[in-house]
């Protein structure tokens, strides 16, 4: 699912140094699974931050609280009564969680403590790899299960480009070229014809915020 990484300490301390009492809100969902923003990481980050400010003789109190999933209102209710006593919030949830917390508490400044990176897979303990960028129009059906948006540095829908060198990408020589992988995979499965047709590139212009309403539940929201 969603993978993230803790921001550099300097960036977090820079954003909260003006405040006296800070609450660090963790998330028990995806970022807790990728060992980035769960309760354990909240406690660890708080210790680090407290040490940082103590060494510089700055008087800031940082406390931590972890909720199940900040992206759901139901789990934010328990925060309602503890939040008023804090000057500002930092959140170790993903971007969606931070924004939802900010929306619920309009008078509190909220700072992210995590860089939300991608939707990815678990390779090993603490090692994750990007697999999806949530573009909203999945094409891996005809590219043989290799996503050209995330795996190709240029996001080409009709590849490869001219920069392939010994099956590697010209942007980063460590990465395999996605289109070579796509070609090999389709050839093995005898479905080369899938990529012979030219596909129109995704319309990246209209990046408006997307709302998802499932087909079965459309009748509920059509009245409005």
């Amino acid at each position: 699912m969603v993978k993230g990484k803790v921001k550099p300490l300097e960036e977090i301390t820079e954003s909260i140094k003006k405040y006296k009492k800070v609450l660090n809100i963790g998330c028990g969902g995806c970022v807790s699974v990728c060992l980035a923003g769960g309760q354990r990481e909240v406690i660890a980050l708080n210790e680090e931050l407290n040490l940082f400010f103590k060494n510089r003789n700055i008087d800031i109190l940082i406390e931590g609280y972890t909720v199940e999933r900040p992206c759901n209102n139901q789990y934010l209710i328990e925060l309602d009564e503890i939040i008023p006593s804090y000057d500002c919030l930092i959140s170790m949830a993903c971007g969606a969680g931070v924004q939802h917390i900010a929306e619920r508490y309009p008078d509190k400044p909220v700072f992210p403590a995590l860089d939300t990176i991608a939707i990815g897979i678990d390779r090993d303990v603490g090692l994750y790899e990007e697999r999806c960028r949530a573009c909203g129009e999945c094409v891996i059906g005809y590219t043989g299960g290799v996503c050209p948006v995330t795996r190709c540095a240029k996001g080409l829908y009709n590849g490869p480009c001219g920069g392939v060198l010994k099956d590697k990408c010209e942007v980063n020589a460590d990465n395999y070229c996605a289109w070579v992988m796509i070609y090999n995979r389709l050839k093995e499965q005898d479905r080369i014809e899938d990529i012979i047709n030219v596909r129109p590139a995704t319309d990246w212009r209209n990046q408006v915020q997307r709302t998802i309403v499932q087909k079965k539940y459309e009748h509920r929201y059509n009245k409005r």
Binding site: G28, V33, L35, G38, Q39, I43, T66, E68
Partner: peptide, 25 residues
């Protein structure tokens, strides 16, 4: 039901009793 399970989790969290995510998979 979800609110009951989440309350059970909140109680465990308040005592620092947590699952080990890196042990599971």
């Amino acid at each position: 039901i979800p609110s009951m399970i989440s309350l059970a989790r909140t109680i465990c969290r308040s005592q620092n009793i947590l699952p080990e995510f890196h042990e599971q998979s």
